[in-house]
C-alpha cells in the first residue's frame, strides 16, 4: 500500500473538501483549539494524531457540529457550515458518514435495522431493496450475513466497529469520519480494517478523516498525516515529512521504540 508522497500530499492544488480556518473551541476557561487551520483534500485518507486530551475528538466533533465553536470557520464541500439553512445543512449531513469510537450503534435495533436507519430516513425505497442494500453494506465491511439479525449487545468489539462502519456507509457518503477505528481490535483485525478502509476509499472514492493512534494505520493507509499539539496543527504531510519533522512530540511519536518496530517491519 505504499504511495508516493509526490502524487498525494505534496500536491496542494487539489480541491479541499474540508477547510478549517482559525478554529477556536473551548470549554469554560480552557481553550482547547487555538486558531487551528486544516485542509482535507478530496479523495485522500488523512490520519490525525496527537497526544491524548489535546482535542483530536473535539476537532472532529466541531466539524460535525456536535461541539460549538468560539471562532473561525469550517467549510465542507465548499460551503460554510455557519451560514447554512436547516435544509442545506441536512443535505451536507447525508453526504458524510461517522464511525464513533464506541460504535454508537442503536442498542435496541439489530445490525440490519441500524444500517437501514439513515436509508429509511432519507430514501424512498422498496423493502426489498432496503434489505438488499443493508446486506450489501454488511458484507462489504466483512461481517457474516448471520450478524445482520443480531443486536449490538451480542457483537464483539471488532464486529461493532464493522457494523458501525456499515451504518456510516449506508448513504454512500463522500466523507468518512473515523474516530480511532482500530483501537480495541487485535493486530490482525486492525490490519484487515485498514485494508477495508483503503479498499472502500479506492472503489467508492471516499475522503477519509481518521483520528488514530495506530502507527500501522498511519504507515499503511494514510496518504497524509496531521499532528495536533497545543491547540493547533504542529506538523502535516506524508509519513516521510513527519519522520523528518523537528517537533519534539512528533519526533518521539514517530521515532519511539514502537514506531521503529513498525517502520522496520514495513520497510524490511
Amino acid at each position: 500500500m505504499a504511495r508516493s508522497p509526490a502524487a498525494n500530499g505534496a500536491d496542494r492544488s487539489r480541491e479541499a473538501i474540508i477547510r478549517v480556518r482559525e478554529l477556536e473551541v473551548g470549554f469554560g476557561e480552557r481553550l482547547i483549539l487555538k486558531k487551528l487551520d486544516l485542509d482535507v483534500y478530496r479523495g485522500e485518507i488523512l490520519g490525525f494524531v496527537g497526544p491524548s486530551g489535546q482535542g483530536k475528538s473535539v476537532l472532529t466533533r466541531a466539524i460535525l457540529g456536535l461541539n460549538p465553536k468560539r471562532g473561525g470557520s469550517i467549510e465542507v464541500f465548499g460551503e460554510d457550515l455557519d451560514g447554512m439553512s436547516g435544509e442545506s445543512r441536512k443535505s451536507v449531513e447525508r453526504r458524510w458518514g461517522v464511525l464513533f469510537q464506541q460504535g454508537a450503534l442503536f442498542s435496541a435495533l439489530t445490525v440490519r435495522q441500524n444500517v437501514q436507519v439513515p436509508m429509511r430516513e432519507y430514501l424512498k425505497l422498496s423493502e426489498r431493496l432496503l434489505d438488499e442494500l443493508a446486506m450489501l453494506k454488511i458484507e462489504m465491511v466483512g461481517l457474516k450475513p448471520d450478524a445482520a439479525d443480531k443486536l449490538p449487545s451480542e457483537l464483539s468489539g471488532g464486529m461493532i466497529k464493522r457494523a458501525s462502519l456499515a451504518r456510516a456507509l449506508a448513504l454512500d457518503p463522500e466523507i468518512l469520519f473515523l474516530d480511532e477505528p482500530t483501537s480495541g481490535l487485535d493486530p490482525i483485525g486492525a490490519g484487515e480494517f485498514d485494508e477495508l478502509i483503503a479498499t472502500l476509499q479506492r472503489t467508492l472514492g471516499l475522503t477519509v478523516f481518521m483520528v488514530t493512534h495506530d502507527l500501522d494505520s498511519l504507515y499503511t493507509v494514510c496518504d497524509r498525516i496531521a499532528a495536533l499539539g497545543d491547540g493547533r496543527i504542529i506538523a502535516e504531510g506524508p509519513i516521510d515529512e513527519m519522520l523528518a519533522s523537528e517537533d519534539p512530540w512528533v519526533r518521539s511519536y514517530f521515532h519511539g521504540k514502537r514506531a521503529r518496530a513498525v517502520a522496520g517491519g514495513i520497510e524490511g
Binding site: 434489505d131 438488499e132 446486506m135 450489501l136 450475513p145 445482520a148 439479525d149 479506492r202 472503489t203
Partner: peptide
C-alpha cells in the same frame, strides 16, 4: 473503468431474507 470497479465490488448475490 471506475464504474467497472464498482460493479465488480458489489457483484449481485442472493441474500437470505430476514428470518
Amino acid at each position: 473503468p471506475e464504474h467497472h470497479i464498482l460493479l465488480n465490488e458489489v457483484a449481485y448475490r442472493g441474500f437470505q431474507p430476514a428470518t
